[in-house]
Structures are given as C-alpha cells and as structure tokens.
Design a protein around this nucleic acid. Structure first.
Lengths: 282, 282
DNA sequence: TCTTGACTTTGTAACTGCTATAAGGTTTAA
DNA sequence: TTAAACCTTATAGCAGTTACAAAGTCAAGA
C-alpha cells in the first residue's frame, strides 16, 4: 500500500495529522504523492522509516530545525556532533532540575518546621547538622539601617549571587550572620548576608561550612521582632551560663507572600552554637 | 527611594523591562505609582520583596498563573499544594531526561562500534554482558515477507511500545530474535521483534533478560544482507564445532537517516551465544 | 531655548511544536 | 443520494519571553 492518507499515516505512527502537515511544510517529511486537484497528501509505507528517525531524534531532545539539518546534511557526523551537544544540554537541564527539587524539598521542610515551631520568646536547644552557606559581606551593619536599606542589600546579594552562578531557587532561606565576637559583646553588628546551599557546593570563595552541634534557638515572626529575639538569646546565654561556640545565624525559614504588595514578613529562626560553661564531669 | 523607573527596577533585580510590564499586565506585580499623563511606571523599593517571591516561585518551576493563584490566594496552604505537585512534576521530568541521556549514550556507543566494526562476512567471538530486551511477538515470520510488511510490523511494535509506556527514545536499536531451536535447525524463522532497554526495567510482561556470555558475532550493512549473514553464522558454527547456547539476536546498531526518503538502511550485528562442544579439560 | 541621548510608552510579531477550531471540499459505503 | 468520515487551508492559541518600531518624555549641556 503506497497510498496512505494523512489520517492513516498519523494513526499507524501515533502522530497527529497536524504534526505531519507541519513536517510537510518544513520539508522534514513530504508525502510521496500529492493530488494537485484536491490537495490530498498520500504517503508511502516506506516513509515510516523517516518518521521513525524524526521521532527518535525528537526523543533525544533535538528540535525540528536540528533534525532537518541532520537529515538534510546526509552526514552522520553531524548527527554525532548534535548528540554530543545534546548530551551536555541534558546534563545541564538535569542539574537545574536537581537544584529545583532540592529547593522544593527545602521549602517543604521549612514549612513543616514553621507549622510545628515553638512559641515566640522561648529558647530551646537543638542539634543542627552541618550546613553550607554562601556568604556575602555588605560591609554595612544590617541592624543600623531600615528595611529600605535592607532591600538594597538584598538586591546586591542577588547580583553577587548570579555572578557566582548559583541557581536562583536558593533565593529563599536568606539570612544574616552575626560573628561570634560581636554576639558575645552583645553588639548588634552583622554585615554579612547568607544563603544556605546544598552540600554539593565545595567550600571556596564565598562558600563557608557551618559545623554541626548543639544550638540555642529561638523563633520569631516579622523583621521587627528580630532584634528583640536576638537580645533574648544573648540574655538567656548569660543567665544560664552557656559558652558561645560560634557565629549566630539569623535564618529566614519562610518568607510569606507579601500580600499587601509592600511589607516583607517572614518567620525567623535565630540560632547560636553553645556549650555549657561549667559542665560536671560524671 | 520610592520612585524607581521600570529600567532601574529591572536592573537592580536582574529582570527584563518587558517581564516587568508583563507582570504588571497580569497583575502579578503592579507599580506602586503610575503617572497617568505619561503612563510611566514607578516602583517602590519594597516591591522587590514581591518580585523576589515571583522569581523564587519561577525557579521552582511554577508558571505565572500558578504564581498568581498563590499570591492572590493569600493562602500558604495553596503554596504547599503546588510545591507538592511541582515536586512530582520535576521527578517525572528527571526520569525523562534520564532516559533521553541513556538513549544518547547508547547511540554514541553504537556509533563508535560502527566506526570500529570488523569487515563484513567475518565471524568473531565477543564477550557480551547481560542485557534486557522488550519483546513483542508479531506471530509472523520476519523473513518470509518483504520490507513493506516489516514496516507494518514495526508500526505495530511502536503501538505496543507506547502501550507499555516505554519512552520513545528506545525506538532505535530495534532488532529481532531467532529462538535457539530454529537457529539450530537452520530454519529462518523469527516472529519476535525486540528493543534493548536499560537495566532499570524489571523483568516482567514483555521484558526479558539476555544472559552475558561469549557470542559469535558477524556484522553486515543493509537489510538485504541479513539472511546471508545469518547463514554464514550458522555454517561457521557447524564447521567449527560450536554448541548453540541460546537465542540468536539480530541487532540494528545504527539506522541511517533515510536520505532518499524511502529505503531503510542499517548496520546489523548478528550474535549468538555459543560454547565449544569438545572442550579439552586442562 | 534647542538639541542630544537616554530613557519611557504602546503595540506587534516572532519564537517552538504543536493543538484546536472553522469553513469548506472529497471519498466511500450504504 | 445521502450521510459519515475523511481531507483541505487558514487562523488562533499556548507560555514567557525577546525583538523590534514608532512615538512620547526627561535631564543635561550649548
């Protein structure tokens, strides 16, 4: 049978008629015969081979133009070149999906923590595993300027961030870090904003490792509560005779959609690594 | 500064102006102020928070409509629902990329083998590792009908294939399998067409495991050479006193783009597992 | 004040690989 | 003969931009 109508051809190959018409127009696969009075397209069964090839190349992620080049070029070398390119392409896409998936999981985790978080103004001890952060020093104290300035700092982080080719999906879970010395002196001074990144980022320029350990934590809602909560944490440590072991991190667990289009509102987790000063040896 | 022009807003956030105009039109992010005489849009620095949210959601793979729903809904539960959906979505996409990548690697491997293949009409011994195939019994002898019929068989395989939800990218590396009994009787009878699939397919309905082992192989170019080569292999086995250990596989390593739009042309590898009949015990 | 250049506005088309629809002509079988 | 099932072309739509064109606005210097 070498008189297959477009509908039949579509059916036996699992393609739509429109797709076949498109391939005709693009000269990817032209019917072996056209009735010039009616305009009807008729295919030959052997043309299925070409269609198989097209579908296979499509499955490899090639676009129609590339496929055309390949088939027109009549050069199998061209095909392998495109395969090579396509492979790198796919690896890149997989990387992106990988990051997106991690970001989603991180978001879900944050949401769960938000739902089961303790009350505000309570301090609790938590074990926190090792994490990695991307650190950006703004040289300006986050606590000495208002929210407007903070926005500008974030914009600058965003730029720096793109510069380091980090995937955009990490742009939740922002935070700031108050170095140990200032925290101990109860001085509200933090010049660095941070982003939590996955373990596949190697510690290098900008990437820092935060060690695992016991942390004293407190949770609060809203930017205006942050300073108050920090002071709470500082006082708690003095009162209960803890020793500060490292930097204090102010982590945004969830940032809420800004409903009114203006005010940022977020759920914070403040955390500082400690150990008991006068521990009894059992 | 609450009088940021669209260009400035675009720059500090790494977005295009057109994107901002689109967000305005879609009511995703509308400028805080519009000069009704000039039509100029002016943004407030605090609106960056909303833009961050949009960019973050986009990075998670959400589309603009979903983002709008999320932000409009003012419901964080909606967000987690979409996250959940998005996660499954990403996993599916990763699966597809995984298959596409495997298919590309398989193609590249085939191409390398094609380039370094031995001459036609020579028989060589090869060790071949375990493989999995998807098997489809056409109930019709591939060798008793012409190419037109073969095309129909392939169409039917394609359908069956889609039915089993195998990714389309395996539709290269087609082949046929001649069962041991017929091969031994030198009877050209094969009713099953096959596809090689990855190891992640569990042996079940349609999926069969081909054991590793030593295979006698011969390579040939073109469908018309296949029968001849099969006979060569059969005779070689008799002459050299080998014992057939399993089914004979006729594998298409590369199918060439059908340049003339008609004739299928391919590079075959015929292979049959054997052992020496009268092996000396050393 | 005029000019220049950098900005802004709106609107349209293009991109990809189709799908969907409409309005109308053809084939086939009862 | 007539209806069903097919075919044709042409158009719009999708999503998220990008890339124009044509025209209006702003700020600074001569």
């Amino acid at each position: 049978m070498d008189h297959i109508t477009i509908g039949a051809m579509a059916k036996i190959n699992g393609v739509s008629e429109q797709a076949l018409r498109l391939y005709d127009k693009m000269k990817l696969l032209q019917p072996s015969e056209i009735n010039h009075e009616t305009g009807y397209r008729y295919y030959n069964i052997k043309q299925c081979a070409q269609l198989d090839m097209i579908q296979y190349m499509k499955a490899l992620g090639m676009n129609l133009v590339q496929i055309k080049e390949c088939l027109d070029g009549k050069d199998i070398r061209k095909f392998t070149q495109i395969l090579d390119m396509q492979k790198r392409n796919i690896e890149k896409q997989m990387m992106e999906l990988h990051y997106a998936k991690q970001a989603i999981e991180r978001s879900m985790e944050s949401y769960r923590r938000y739902e089961s978080a303790p009350e505000e103004n309570t301090v609790i001890m938590e074990f926190i595993p090792q994490r990695r952060i991307f650190c950006y020093d703004t040289k300006i104290n986050c606590y000495s300027y208002g929210m407007d300035y903070y926005e500008h700092i974030l914009r600058s982080l965003k730029k720096n961030y793109v510069l380091h080719r980090l995937p955009m999906c990490y742009f939740c879970n922002v935070g700031s870090i108050m170095r140990k010395e200032y925290f101990q002196k109860k001085e509200l001074l933090a010049t660095e904003v941070i982003l939590f990144v996955e373990d596949d980022f190697q510690p290098d320029d900008g990437i820092e490792v935060i060690p695992e350990g016991m942390y004293l934590c407190t949770y609060c809602y809203g930017f205006n509560k942050e300073e108050e909560s920090l002071k709470l944490l500082m006082d708690y440590i003095t009162e209960h005779n803890y020793e500060v072991k490292g930097d204090c991190i102010s982590e945004i667990l969830i940032e809420f959609p800004t409903f009114n289009n203006y005010d940022r509102s977020a759920f914070f987790k403040l955390q500082v690594p400690v150990k008991q000063k006068k521990k009894k040896i059992i």
